[in-house]
Nucleic acid binder design. Sequence first.
DNA 1: CAGGATCGTCGATACGCATCGACGATCACG
DNA 2: CGTGATCGTCGATGCGTATCGACGATCCTG
Lengths: 354, 354
Amino acid sequence: MRIDDPGDAAVPARRRPAPTSKDVARVAGVSQSTVSYVMSGKRPISEATRRLVLDAIAELTYEPHAGARALAGHRTKVVGLMMPLHDAESAGGLMEFAEEIAIQARRRDHDVLMLTADEGPSALARVQRRAMCDAVVIMQVITDDPRVATAREVDLPVILIGVPADRDGLHCIDVDFESAAELLVDELADASAREIAVLGWAQEWDDAGANFIPRFRASAAARAAARGVALRWVGAPHTRGGVEAFLDAVLDPDGGAHPGLLTVQSPHHVGAALQQRGLLPGRDLDLVSLCTDAEAERQPVPLTAVSTQPRCVSAEAMAWLFDLLDGDAPAELRLVPARLTRRASVRPIKENRP
Amino acid sequence: MRIDDPGDAAVPARRRPAPTSKDVARVAGVSQSTVSYVMSGKRPISEATRRLVLDAIAELTYEPHAGARALAGHRTKVVGLMMPLHDAESAGGLMEFAEEIAIQARRRDHDVLMLTADEGPSALARVQRRAMCDAVVIMQVITDDPRVATAREVDLPVILIGVPADRDGLHCIDVDFESAAELLVDELADASAREIAVLGWAQEWDDAGANFIPRFRASAAARAAARGVALRWVGAPHTRGGVEAFLDAVLDPDGGAHPGLLTVQSPHHVGAALQQRGLLPGRDLDLVSLCTDAEAERQPVPLTAVSTQPRCVSAEAMAWLFDLLDGDAPAELRLVPARLTRRASVRPIKENRP
DNA sequence: CAGGATCGTCGATACGCATCGACGATCACG
DNA sequence: CGTGATCGTCGATGCGTATCGACGATCCTG
């Protein structure tokens, strides 16, 4: 295993110190402060000088030292992202979410510092005192989230994904689960369902304090009532067994008129279990789901589904964050609309559809 | 929406500047440099003085300014993590992987900067020139990875997860897919299988350059030959349809002696498809899988499986990284052993088992 | 008890950038 | 042609920490 081979000619550029703004100034024949003003645009610079400096920057492939910039300029160009605790069920959406956060940050020449939820509220205090971030995004905030109190104390712009009990003075954003529920109930009601059976979230989620569950549930119930449809909510675990029990409980044993089915997670288990019973969504009954578009299209029968659009939430959260960073933005609750996409799992009804 | 309410008494601690090491020095009655030496331990300090300083630090809840430390000390206490492109299939393992990286970093008082693969090799050059990281971990490196050339040029310790074509002078770590294949083939052979059918990775993965596939495949073939077992490799997409086609092709239509089944992804599709045919792993045939432990246990019949142990790979990678940071560590390829866990999906055979 | 060695602490400096005040040059206008 | 005003650039300073050389105090040795 050969390392540090002195005869290796393939190591030309190593150990060469990175160029500084002073180097750029020397090459361009201007002062260091002029280089700084060219980069920040905070003072007028003549076109000729600007060109000289930009050429020098390109020639040296200069990039400002992040630490020096943070020290002198009081900003880091880094956004903290507090990830949720690992959870296999929702992993897909979370990755997409985080990736979009990073993409949006890079679009504005910022970076993302990854914070873990298990470090807890102290992570916020730490990154503030050490001046590591200009702002923080906290994912998957629950009703009684211990991180919220710290978020309020900390002298950093914070965006919360999710809705805590007391959101006074906080910037919260979430999917509009109320309208998502309405869209799903309407879709089944429009398909002439007189009864809707919902495979809700597992009890653990509810217990954990994920308040989008009661929001979704209340909205679905209200909409169903308004449409004159009976709604039956079953909170089963999203395992194969839980799904089987759900279907046993709600399907018509005579094979007659099945209720419209609405599942909020792992639709593939529902699809597989139905298939095993010889039932095909879109042919024998109606099935709608709350899931990502990718998930809906991965099913044997592509699902009519409402997507929570994780990338939209991320993008909106980051847009808001940068508004906060330059100037003020109101502390409020923003709900990102959910979007229904019709696919093949609901039987087409001509009437009632524009 | 009320913000910046001047009458709000709940904003006492805001806009108070963070304490500096000079503040600590004043409170402790020593000089600033003494504070620094207490924190770094790079010079002997008397127990009495150390106590004074530590008390002052605690009293002020002082934390060093990251930018200033980076500027003066030439290290950032930040590790870059280049995440793979979003991929729904493997999302579960990836989140666990990244989380463990963060945990290991925090254990050593470091943080993790999230870099995205779609920014590509330039991200490496950027974080180096800006001095944002002390080292970088690159996930999911493939055979002809464009990031590898940059990784070699860059003057930063780099750990690659995965094996590129030319790994001369590089620090690479990966799961030992060779021994994983052997464990799985052995398990089926020990259960008296005379024939093994493998549901391999989808073609796209192979095309993308994931070289663990040929490594796994060659090793499985060699072991099967050594054990006198016929091996049939089928590279089907891991959709429900792909799995059905796989089973149609390899199962004995007469319902007689089925081959031993080995799947390397999404075992739940295989389990569901088998169940639909009235076949139960561990009763009617033998099924083993390469997947995470969580996935294996989530199946209706808990699967005998080899786990790629993402947390072990992360932990080992980070241990190596910190060895690299203080002192040298050899540039080599490290393979993390895979671990077989016997569950219920293989029919027990007394003979040949210790 | 004198001598040097060791221990513990301090003051000064440098790190690379942003920002402020100052100042020469250019221009418009009377 | 003189006088402000504006424009463009420069020099100097400070951000908070790590580190180096220096130096008084203490210890051990002969």
